[in-house]
Amino acid sequence: MKSIAVVGYGVIGKRVADAINVQDDMNLIGVCDVISDWRIQNAIRKEYDIYAATAEAEKEMKAASIPAKGNLQDLLKKTDLVVDCTPKNIAAKNVEIYKKLSIKFILQGGEKHHTTGHSFSAENNYQSAINLDATRVVSCNTTSILRTLTTLKRADLLDYARGTLLRRATDPWESHLGGIMNTMVPEKDIPSHQGPDAKSVDPELDVITAAVKVPETLSHMHYWNVKLKKQATKEEVLNAFKTSTRIKLINYDQGLVSNNTIKEMFLDMGRPWGDMYEVALWEDMLKVVGDELFYAYVVDNQAIVIPETIDAIRALTGIETDAAKSIAKTNISLGII
């Protein structure tokens, strides 16, 4: 049993903490943050040990009657590995602390690849992460790109891929603070960062992405045009996608016509927060024309990286050296069937 700490108890951190808590081969030793509001109160309700990230945060927690067990340094003394889920750029500063204390750590996709020197996607490069000191679980969109393209690559179908991403404007709980209304905002650069980010995991991929920010908060949507190595049938392509346990094939003609209906399905399935850990890819929309493949899917940016993070913990700590066994174990624990 490895002792795992979560630093940053926000949208990703709270989900990572819950996922760690249902594993039988790792122990959530505590969560650490600067907040003293309803979010950390929920962590107390779940009986997680709370730690303050800064001296000021510790004072505020004490004033709010939050039973903090200590500060970040106190937490790290008990920890085998840290999953840092703090906002972009904060984690990069925390890295120096982890390195000084020789503690393994996992960062999220908002940080740069060079911060860890390794970027992770469970079905692609699990083996290369075994017993490393650090890795970065790539972003939600990049995770979806790697999952789908890796299946095509394994089937020896993938030549190159070109994708357009429709990106949600902000997280739902922060909609009152920002986002966009009645407009769409294209990213200036082509390729957008997701394509090069996918290549940080798999340099062999020939992938280019373009992205547009759209006025909604439920999910991202991707459209892909893939050049296949040979002419193939739709069945061959679907069989390739089915080799991933984290791609869920859905059908437009079953009423799953939009991201909100897909979200409702996962809520009805009993997933916490209606989380969709899988890539939801439309089976009946997928088209193959000669050696060209066209498909679309939806990405839950709050949830897709959660199983990847659990697998990354196992790889770095050496709990499990077989990628397939780790993925299967994580899937069962999170209800991915």
Rank of each mutant, 00 (worst) to 15 (best):
E216S: 13
T317P: 08
H176P: 00
E292I: 00
Q108T: 15
K2M: 09
D33Q: 09
N251E: 15
V7S: 00
D171M: 08
A296M: 12
D284V: 02
D24N: 15
I29C: 05
M269D: 12
A64K: 08
E111W: 03
Y223K: 10
E308F: 08
T143G: 08
R168L: 02
D300Q: 07
A211Y: 06
V31N: 02
A240K: 06
V16Y: 02
S139L: 07
T233L: 02
K227R: 09
V82H: 01
I145M: 11
G195L: 03
N21H: 12
T321Q: 15
D275Y: 01
V137L: 07
Y277W: 06
D24Y: 05
L28V: 06
W282L: 05
T116P: 07
L107T: 13
K213P: 01
L146P: 02
K62L: 09
E187W: 05
V212Q: 12
A5Q: 02
A328S: 15
S144E: 12
N94F: 11
I247C: 06
F105A: 11
S333I: 07
T330K: 03
R136E: 11
E236M: 05
K78V: 02
R168C: 11
P196R: 06
K59E: 11
A91Y: 11
D268M: 06
D197W: 07
C85L: 06
K59Y: 01
T86L: 13
E320S: 08
K188P: 04
E320W: 05
H220M: 08
K242C: 04
H193G: 09
I208D: 13
A169M: 08
G335K: 11
R168H: 10
A57P: 02
N125G: 06
G110D: 09
K287L: 08
D202F: 07
G70A: 00
Y9S: 01
L101S: 11
I29R: 03
D291Y: 00
I145A: 07
G270K: 01
T209G: 10
V22N: 05
N301L: 10
A122F: 15
L228G: 04
D275R: 04
V237S: 00
F120V: 08
K263M: 05
T148P: 00
V31D: 02
T79D: 01
K329P: 09
V185L: 14
H113K: 15
F241K: 04
I12K: 04
T151F: 04
R136F: 07
S200L: 12
D275F: 00
I35G: 13
T142N: 03
V137K: 04
V6L: 04
G110E: 09
D268W: 03
E56I: 11
P196Y: 07
I40P: 04
V226W: 00
D18N: 13
A122S: 14
L76A: 02
P186E: 03
M61K: 08
Y126C: 11
H222F: 15
N94Y: 14
D33R: 01
I12M: 14
E278T: 10
L146A: 08
S192G: 05
G255A: 02
E56Q: 13
G110T: 10
N124D: 14
L132H: 10
N182R: 05
S219R: 03
V185G: 03
L157V: 00
P186M: 01
L218K: 09
A53D: 06
G179C: 00
L256C: 09
I90C: 09
E96S: 15
T148R: 02
